[in-house]
Simulated scan of single mutants.
Amino acid sequence: MTRALKGSGFLGLAVMMVVGLHQFVILSGGSAVPPWMIGGHAHLGVLSILAVVMGFAVPALEVTGTLRTAVTALFVAGQWGIPGIVWLGEGFGLTFLMPTGFLWGGALIVSMLIMFYYSVTEPANAAGGGSSSFAPGDD
Protein backbone atom coordinates (compact mmCIF):
# COMPACT_ATOMS: atom_id res chain seq x y z
CA MET A 1 0.00 0.00 0.00
CA THR A 2 2.79 2.46 0.67
CA ARG A 3 4.05 1.84 -2.85
CA ALA A 4 0.78 3.32 -4.04
CA LEU A 5 1.36 6.46 -1.97
CA LYS A 6 4.99 6.86 -3.02
CA GLY A 7 4.23 6.03 -6.66
CA SER A 8 1.30 8.42 -6.76
CA GLY A 9 3.48 11.08 -5.18
CA PHE A 10 6.27 10.75 -7.70
CA LEU A 11 3.83 10.54 -10.62
CA GLY A 12 2.08 13.64 -9.31
CA LEU A 13 5.38 15.48 -9.11
CA ALA A 14 6.17 14.52 -12.71
CA VAL A 15 2.74 15.72 -13.89
CA MET A 16 3.15 18.92 -11.87
CA MET A 17 6.52 19.53 -13.56
CA VAL A 18 5.01 19.01 -17.02
CA VAL A 19 2.28 21.51 -16.16
CA GLY A 20 4.97 23.89 -14.92
CA LEU A 21 6.82 23.62 -18.23
CA HIS A 22 3.55 24.23 -20.06
CA GLN A 23 3.05 27.36 -17.97
CA PHE A 24 6.55 28.48 -18.92
CA VAL A 25 5.69 28.04 -22.60
CA ILE A 26 2.55 30.14 -22.12
CA LEU A 27 4.56 32.88 -20.40
CA SER A 28 7.29 32.71 -23.05
CA GLY A 29 4.65 33.34 -25.67
CA GLY A 30 3.68 36.57 -23.98
CA SER A 31 0.41 35.37 -22.48
CA ALA A 32 -0.69 35.16 -18.87
CA VAL A 33 -1.08 31.77 -17.21
CA PRO A 34 -4.71 31.22 -16.17
CA PRO A 35 -5.19 31.24 -12.38
CA TRP A 36 -6.93 27.83 -12.46
CA MET A 37 -3.81 26.30 -13.99
CA ILE A 38 -1.58 27.82 -11.33
CA GLY A 39 -3.87 26.67 -8.53
CA GLY A 40 -4.05 23.08 -9.75
CA HIS A 41 -0.29 23.03 -10.29
CA ALA A 42 0.42 24.22 -6.75
CA HIS A 43 -2.04 21.84 -5.12
CA LEU A 44 -0.76 18.83 -7.05
CA GLY A 45 2.82 19.70 -6.13
CA VAL A 46 2.21 20.03 -2.40
CA LEU A 47 -0.10 17.01 -2.18
CA SER A 48 2.35 14.89 -4.17
CA ILE A 49 5.18 15.73 -1.79
CA LEU A 50 2.88 14.79 1.08
CA ALA A 51 2.03 11.50 -0.66
CA VAL A 52 5.71 10.57 -0.72
CA VAL A 53 6.05 11.52 2.96
CA MET A 54 2.91 9.53 3.77
CA GLY A 55 4.46 6.53 2.03
CA PHE A 56 7.12 6.55 4.74
CA ALA A 57 4.92 7.69 7.64
CA VAL A 58 2.28 4.96 7.29
CA PRO A 59 4.67 2.06 7.97
CA ALA A 60 6.67 4.10 10.50
CA LEU A 61 3.53 4.62 12.57
CA GLU A 62 2.55 0.98 12.02
CA VAL A 63 -0.83 1.76 10.45
CA THR A 64 -2.20 -1.63 9.41
CA GLY A 65 -5.22 -3.39 7.99
CA THR A 66 -8.32 -1.56 6.91
CA LEU A 67 -7.11 1.77 8.25
CA ARG A 68 -3.92 1.48 6.19
CA THR A 69 -6.02 0.85 3.09
CA ALA A 70 -8.31 3.75 4.00
CA VAL A 71 -5.42 6.18 4.54
CA THR A 72 -3.89 5.23 1.20
CA ALA A 73 -7.09 5.29 -0.85
CA LEU A 74 -8.43 8.47 0.71
CA PHE A 75 -5.16 10.33 0.36
CA VAL A 76 -4.54 9.32 -3.27
CA ALA A 77 -8.14 10.21 -4.17
CA GLY A 78 -7.74 13.64 -2.60
CA GLN A 79 -4.28 14.17 -4.06
CA TRP A 80 -5.63 13.85 -7.60
CA GLY A 81 -9.20 15.00 -6.97
CA ILE A 82 -8.39 18.50 -5.70
CA PRO A 83 -6.23 19.63 -8.64
CA GLY A 84 -8.32 17.55 -11.03
CA ILE A 85 -11.54 19.41 -10.30
CA VAL A 86 -9.77 22.75 -10.53
CA TRP A 87 -8.41 21.85 -13.96
CA LEU A 88 -11.59 20.18 -15.20
CA GLY A 89 -14.06 22.51 -13.53
CA GLU A 90 -12.47 25.84 -14.30
CA GLY A 91 -10.15 24.95 -17.15
CA PHE A 92 -12.53 22.86 -19.19
CA GLY A 93 -15.76 24.53 -18.11
CA LEU A 94 -17.11 21.52 -16.20
CA THR A 95 -18.16 23.67 -13.27
CA PHE A 96 -20.73 21.12 -12.14
CA LEU A 97 -17.74 19.13 -10.80
CA MET A 98 -16.62 21.91 -8.47
CA PRO A 99 -18.78 20.82 -5.48
CA THR A 100 -16.88 17.51 -5.44
CA GLY A 101 -14.03 19.51 -3.94
CA PHE A 102 -15.72 18.90 -0.59
CA LEU A 103 -15.51 15.14 -1.24
CA TRP A 104 -11.81 15.24 -2.17
CA GLY A 105 -10.97 17.63 0.64
CA GLY A 106 -12.91 15.46 3.08
CA ALA A 107 -10.97 12.41 1.93
CA LEU A 108 -7.70 14.19 2.69
CA ILE A 109 -8.96 15.33 6.09
CA VAL A 110 -10.09 11.83 7.11
CA SER A 111 -6.75 10.41 5.98
CA MET A 112 -4.90 12.99 8.08
CA LEU A 113 -7.11 12.38 11.12
CA ILE A 114 -6.33 8.65 10.98
CA MET A 115 -2.63 9.50 10.83
CA PHE A 116 -3.09 11.96 13.70
CA TYR A 117 -4.69 9.21 15.78
CA TYR A 118 -1.79 6.86 15.13
CA SER A 119 0.78 9.57 15.79
CA VAL A 120 -0.59 10.34 19.26
CA THR A 121 -1.45 6.78 20.35
CA GLU A 122 1.73 4.96 19.32
CA PRO A 123 4.21 4.20 22.09
CA ALA A 124 6.99 6.77 22.49
CA ASN A 125 9.64 4.35 21.18
CA ALA A 126 7.76 3.65 17.92
CA ALA A 127 8.95 5.38 14.75
CA GLY A 128 11.90 7.07 16.44
CA GLY A 129 9.72 8.93 18.91
CA GLY A 130 11.76 7.99 21.98
CA SER A 131 14.82 9.60 23.47
CA SER A 132 18.06 9.37 21.56
CA SER A 133 21.47 8.26 22.80
CA PHE A 134 23.35 10.60 20.45
CA ALA A 135 23.44 14.35 20.06
CA PRO A 136 22.52 15.88 16.71
CA GLY A 137 25.55 16.98 14.69
CA ASP A 138 24.17 20.42 13.89
CA ASP A 139 23.72 21.78 17.41
Rank of each mutant, 00 (worst) to 15 (best):
D138Q: 02
A73M: 06
G101F: 08
A32C: 06
R68C: 04
G30M: 05
V53C: 11
H43L: 15
P123Q: 15
L50D: 00
A135E: 01
G81I: 02
Q79K: 09
T100P: 08
L27E: 10
L94W: 10
G84K: 06
G7F: 09
R68A: 07
E122I: 06
A107W: 11
T66I: 14
S31W: 14
G7S: 07
P136A: 11
S48L: 14
A126I: 14
W36G: 08
I82H: 01
T64S: 13
P136M: 06
I109S: 04
V76K: 04
F10T: 06
Y117G: 05
G30A: 07
E90Y: 12
T72W: 05
W104N: 06
D138H: 00
F102Q: 12
F102T: 14
L108R: 03
L108M: 12
G91L: 10
I38V: 15
A57E: 10
M37Y: 10
W87H: 07
I114H: 01
H22N: 11
T66N: 13
I26N: 01
Y118P: 05
M17W: 05
A51V: 08
I49A: 12
S48D: 13
G7Y: 11
T69R: 05
F102C: 08
T69K: 05
F24K: 12
F134K: 00
T72H: 04
P34D: 06
G106A: 05
A4N: 05
L113Y: 13
S111M: 07
L27Q: 09
I49E: 07
G137I: 10
D139G: 09
V120G: 03
I49H: 10
G128S: 01
V110W: 00
G55N: 03
G39V: 12
W87C: 08
L11H: 10
F92Q: 07
Y117E: 07
W36T: 07
R68H: 11
L5H: 06
L103V: 15
T72V: 12
M1H: 11
I49N: 07
G39S: 15
S132T: 00
G137H: 15
G137W: 12
V76A: 06
G7T: 05
F116H: 09
F96N: 13
G12P: 04
D138Y: 00
N125R: 11
S28K: 13
S31K: 14
W104P: 00
M1N: 10
